[in-house]
Each structure stands twice: as C-alpha cells, then as structure tokens.
Design a protein around this nucleic acid. Structure first.
Lengths: 168, 168
DNA sequence: TATTGTTATACTCTATAACTATA
DNA sequence: TATAGTTATAGAGTATAACAATA
C-alpha cells in the first residue's frame, strides 16, 4: 500500500552500480524470509523463532533452557516465554532433571514432532520460493556458503575454547 | 559472558545434521554483520541504517524522503528521524524541491561524501572479516547469489508494474 | 481530495535487574 | 557463592494515527 505512483522506486538493491550493499541485501532477504515463513507457521507459536526452538528441542539434545537459548543465540528470559507458548500449544514439555533440579530439560511431544515435520517441509518450500531467482544448483551453493559463513561467526567470541567445534 | 562451563553449547548451526536451518543462519549472519559494522561506523549516526541511507543519498538520485524510504524498505516516519540525525552530523542537507514544495530532496554534503567513502572501505573490510570462513572466490559467489536473491524479493509485491526492473 | 513530511502514540522485541529455587 | 529459571521493568526499534503544508 505504499508504492502507488512513480515517485517511490523499488528496492535499489542490485540496480547496476547504484546501490549494491551486502548488509541491505541480507536484511531484505531476512525480512522476506520472516514474512514468507510466518504465513506457513500458523500452528507454531512465535513464528520462525518458535519453529527454530522446536527444531532445536527435537533434533538436538540440550540439557536445559539455558543451553537451548545459548545455541539459538537468544536471551534466557526470552526462552522462558517461548517455552511457555510452546508448552501451551502442546508441542513441548518441561521435564525436571533429577540430577540437577535447577534445570528443565525440554522435550518435544508427539504432537510437537508431528507439527515440526510438517513445518520443516513447508518452510523448506517457502525457502525455495524465496530463492526463486536462483536455479537449483545456485540455491544449493547459496545454502552451503551461508551455512559455512554463519557457522564460523557462531563460533567466535566467548565460546570457542570449551565449545564444540563446528562440524563443517 | 554466558558460556562458561560445558552446559552452554555454541551455535548448533552446521553441526552435522543436528540443526541446519536457513533462517537461523541468515539471522546469525545479519546479527554478526550489525555488530561488526557498528564498531566501524562511529562517525555515521544510526549505524548500518544511517550508512545505507547515506549511500542511497550519495549514490542514488531519489527526489524525496519518501522515495528514499521506499527503496531502503523503511517507514517514512523512521526516515524523518534518520535524516534529522544525518543533518545534525553534517552529512546531508534537506533541499526544498521548487517544482513540488512538499518534497525534500536529500543531498550529501562534501563531508558526507568523505565520511561515506571511508565508511564504504571499512564496511567492505568488515564484511570480508565476517565471511572469513570463505575464500576469495566463495565470498564473491556468495555476494553475487545474495544480491540476486535479494534483488528478486525486493521486486515482488506492490511495486513491479511501475517499478524499475532489477538490473541483473 | 491526495501526497509529503512531521509529530505523537502505541506496539513489539529485546535487554537489564531482581527474585526464587537449587547446587 | 554461583547457577537455572522466572518475573517485572526499561529500552530500542518499528508501526499507526493525526496533523500541517502543498498539490
């Protein structure tokens, strides 16, 4: 509802040497990703973030909410609300760790697993639509390069020494 | 200051089949980008966003704040504050368009151009550090694929018909 | 009547601090 | 004393609505 006349130009990204900014492209792509997967994640609370958390719960093996928050790069206070919503939706459960009763181990319910599997398919399709300008090989290349780059930056900083190395 | 013991794992991204999420990788990379360039853009108000706006002002030729906002994908109300700060820093000026006195054409000052040129070099170096896990050819590939993908999503929706086609 | 720019307001997301319980 | 989790509060960032000036 914004670009009506000819006054408002479309994105300048990629327009032959006018503006070709890496950060802007990254931001545009992430925003478009959020918009696209949001419409596909109606059964998952908190959209992409809830989906990523559910996937980390089901596919990973994190012993606590804190560990979960750490590996997703979000705050532990945010994780509380996130888990609250996932529990309310019946997708995960909080289990007390008998060995250390301060920790809550988050496990996916059967329903959570089922929803996740559907969501993974739908998200994958949305991603391919998002990368529609690239052909199959280019999409695969882009995914691989993105993964490698993100993996490397995820390892910098305070982790590293004690950290599990990024299996490339 | 978070991962001390062995309880908190580093990012799960890329860890051999545990979690390999496109959206998570994109988010991680953008956050790291923001952190990296922020430390490099001390002379540019509003960090990456101010930098992108300054670049759009200097490199593009947008007739109004609204056009500027449109091509950067931000709200016109945000653009007002952004321009306010860039003007206060002496990097751009508001010029009234005599042909349509509702519009303000934003132009870069000599100081703005100078700051921009320095910033562009510094940002480029920061980007290469960010993509340090990729070699030279891979970085070039990644930049090109990212640009093409972002360009395509930037063109969808309300623009398109009236829009300038994305010069690929 | 519609559009540009501004201002004020509200809403969302995230970060900080304080608290409880466990160790 | 330190850590896991929760809650409350505050701060960014962003979106919505109302307004003045101009077309």
């Amino acid at each position: 509802m914004e670009a009506r006349g000819q006054a408002v130009a479309p994105s300048l990204i990629g327009q032959a040497g006018i503006i070709d900014d890496f950060g802007l492209s990254l931001g545009v792509l992430l925003r478009a990703y959020h918009a696209m997967v949001a419409s596909v994640l109606e059964h998952v609370p908190q959209g992409p973030r809830g989906y990523q958390t559910l996937a980390a719960v089901a596919r990973g093996n994190q012993p606590s909410q804190l560990a979960l928050a750490g590996c997703l790069g979000i705050d532990r206070t945010v994780m509380t609300y996130l888990i609250d919503d996932l529990v309310a939706a019946g997708l995960v459960e909080r289990q007390l760790n008998p060995a250390d009763r301060r920790q809550r181990k988050i496990v996916a319910t059967p329903r959570g697993i089922s929803i996740l599997e559907d969501a993974e398919r739908a998200v994958r399709e949305a991603e391919d639509r998002l990368l529609g300008a690239l052909d199959r090989d280019q999409r695969a290349d882009f995914r691989a390069l993105l993964r490698r780059a993100a993996c490397a930056v995820g390892d910098v900083g305070d982790v590293g020494a004690a950290g599990i190395p990024c299996a490339d």
